Amino acid sequence: MQLMAIDNHKRKLLKSSAAALALSPWLTACSSSSLQREKAALVSCSRTANGHFSAVVADSNGYPIYSIPLPERGHGVAISPNGELGVAFARRPGNYMQLFNIETGKSYAITASSPDRYFYGHGVFSSDGMTLYTTEGEKKTSQGIIGVYQLRDHQLIKVNEFSGFGIGPHEVICVDDTTLAIGVGGVHTDGRTPLNLETMQPALVYLSTESGKVVERVGLADHKLSIRHLSQTHDGRVLCGQQYRGEPEDGVPLVAIHQRGGALIPLKAEPEEWLRFNHYIASIAVLGTHVVATSPRGNCYGVWDLETNQLTEIASLVDASGVVVEQSGLNSPQWHISSGAGKVVNRTESGIVTSHQTNVMWDNHWNRIPLK
């Protein structure tokens, strides 16, 4: 019975993907031969004005090269270390992940969640590209699970699960070859409706990939700061962005940094400055000694100096979404920052800013494709 339920759900997802491909003229435009000659540099999920969803492979300026239709709204994308494969994850509480070829735009098998599980929007490949770690959870309890999948003949086969680390995991990253860092939101939900705001227990958790055991766990003083999105500095510290689940008038710190073995330290800004981010951080990326964090709900992004942990600037950007760092190629090292309204901002660490408009409604995250 369970297998039948999964198969029926998978057929529904495939039909949705086919409908998106057939009905969206923008998807067809993305696959034109002139665009395909550009070099793939960025990947993100996106939305279209007529209500369809896709993963988009773009050049370094954010202009689309390929699009991969998705059955429902996507969120994060995992990219294999060699830059060949991508996996787009459904927005939480999601029920699919889509494997695709970044170089050609070809879709492979879609993986549906089991009837009693959600995907939580993120995953990451191991350094050898053969294992994918995903954030998942039980529907009835929101108990967190790290799904462990092996890549076999362009299919993702679940081979293991890690659990017992908390409720409502969101982003997962590899901090080294044997350790995962997980942003555990702590929120038990029915769909997207929170049920335990007074008792939630968010944490930044480090997990062994060999044993699945928790090797370190740290939290914040305010238990209503749900830890969501992660990034890593060049010296191995982990940054986390929060969603605040408390009172609307509270201006609480939404970005924190952690050195292994120490406390989780909030970055600095005035309460009224934190309120500009409207209680939500979507994406984080580090360049040199500075970090950029975006807020689509606040229509802005912030820049912090990691030598002082002090906010240096808040810049307005409508529906500020993904941010990623480009450190190679012809351009100077810079952040690429995307907008759900299609704008792309390029910013150097010294503060030189350029921007241009694309026809893509970018979603929350961007990923950089490794250069070959």
Score class of each variant (00 low, 15 high):
19 A>H: 11
21 L>Q: 13
29 A>M: 13
29 A>G: 11
32 S>N: 08
36 Q>S: 12
36 Q>A: 15
38 E>Q: 14
41 A>H: 11
41 A>M: 15
43 V>R: 00
46 S>R: 04
47 R>D: 13
48 T>K: 12
49 A>W: 11
50 N>W: 09
50 N>A: 14
50 N>H: 15
50 N>E: 15
52 H>M: 12
54 S>P: 03
54 S>T: 11
55 A>I: 09
57 V>E: 03
62 G>S: 09
66 Y>M: 05
67 S>E: 03
67 S>D: 07
68 I>Y: 11
69 P>Q: 12
73 R>S: 06
74 G>V: 07
75 H>A: 07
75 H>L: 10
76 G>K: 00
78 A>Y: 01
78 A>C: 02
78 A>E: 02
82 N>S: 14
83 G>K: 00
84 E>N: 14
85 L>P: 08
87 V>F: 07
88 A>H: 01
88 A>P: 00
90 A>V: 07
90 A>Q: 09
91 R>G: 00
92 R>Q: 04
92 R>C: 00
95 N>Y: 14
96 Y>E: 04
97 M>R: 07
98 Q>G: 05
102 I>S: 03
102 I>T: 03
105 G>E: 03
106 K>F: 09
107 S>M: 08
107 S>T: 06
107 S>D: 00
107 S>P: 08
109 A>Y: 02
110 I>G: 04
116 D>Y: 10
119 F>Q: 01
128 D>R: 02
128 D>S: 06
128 D>W: 08
130 M>E: 13
130 M>S: 15
131 T>D: 10
132 L>S: 00
132 L>W: 07
133 Y>P: 03
135 T>N: 07
136 E>S: 03
137 G>M: 05
137 G>H: 06
138 E>Q: 13
139 K>W: 10
141 T>A: 06
143 Q>S: 14
144 G>Y: 07
145 I>M: 10
147 G>I: 06
149 Y>E: 12
150 Q>A: 12
150 Q>V: 06
153 D>H: 08
